[in-house]
Write a protein that binds this DNA or RNA. Structure first.
Lengths: 137, 137
DNA sequence: ATAATTCACGTACGTTTGTACGGCATAGGA
DNA sequence: TCCTATGCCGTACAAACGTACGTGAATTAT
């Protein structure tokens, strides 16, 4: 457990692309962002620098071009981020968020199917454990 | 659509308590927070002031004590906040977040039951519409 | 009556965030 | 060989954030 400063919203967006693309240059990330919104090259560069200085990525020079690689796994960052959000906006109870997502954001047939399997599995795991741990507050 | 600045994380926590408690004084919110963590009275006071100035609450003096009331509904704030998060951290796809919540955060039997009903309803709504509107964006 | 407490309110202040400029070096094209 | 595009790196800078102090008035307790 490394205790690093949290990523800001903008840094998070860049981090996501870094996971998606894999090790990448500023230009590559910049181009990826540009596909859906305006973004300044230097700004993206700053975000990558900050992401690295916060300990979520490392980089090395390849010739004169710097290549960034994520060092934190998505799962970890997602957990930290979502835990925090659930705490602050829902008082630690994640059901309202799940409810919101399912009801307010679109779910297609495949999603629904997956959801069903997900809870089927949850349920059997639960009963397997005879009783017990459940969830905590 | 009022276009107000987003709430910061800390402001969000206070806003949640304001919804929970209903119209409340600084002291009441402060006490509510204090129940689970340390907090400075003046800091809470600042957050409430900022929440109001951002347009999420209003206040009036009752005697010499100011009483704050939320003016933004939880649903709205949740939607704005979650939309933003899903965009940045998941590229607009909410399934990974749902998956994370269900798998990584505890669900008890009642939650599972509710989930099942939720998706049952979703599914029937979906087929009822023969075809059509589905989800948007 | 005094002293202590409680509040509002203005103000402060270091840090983080979003956004970007400018200089310098280098690689590539004309 | 020069010019131009590309990239790094240091730096900047206003706004937002987290955190809180101090002052003065009003209320409550002694």
């Amino acid at each position: 457990m490394v205790e690093r400063p949290a990523l800001s919203k903008s840094e998070m967006e860049v981090a996501r692309l870094l996971w998606e693309i894999g090790p990448a240059t500023v230009r590559e990330i910049h181009e990826a962002i540009t596909e859906y919104r305006e973004a300044d090259f230097a700004t993206v560069q700053t975000f990558l620098r900050r992401i690295e200085s916060k300990g979520y990525a490392s980089s090395k020079l390849n010739g004169r071009t710097r290549v960034y690689s994520a060092t934190a796994r998505p799962k970890t960052v997602i957990r930290e981020t979502v835990d925090d959000l659930v705490e602050r906006l829902f008082g630690g109870n994640s059901m309202p968020l799940v409810r919101h997502l399912i009801e307010e954001r679109g779910m297609n047939a495949a999603d629904i199917e997956e959801l069903r399997q997900l809870i089927d599995r949850l349920e059997s795991d639960d009963s397997e454990a005879t009783d017990g741990k459940g969830s905590k507050s």
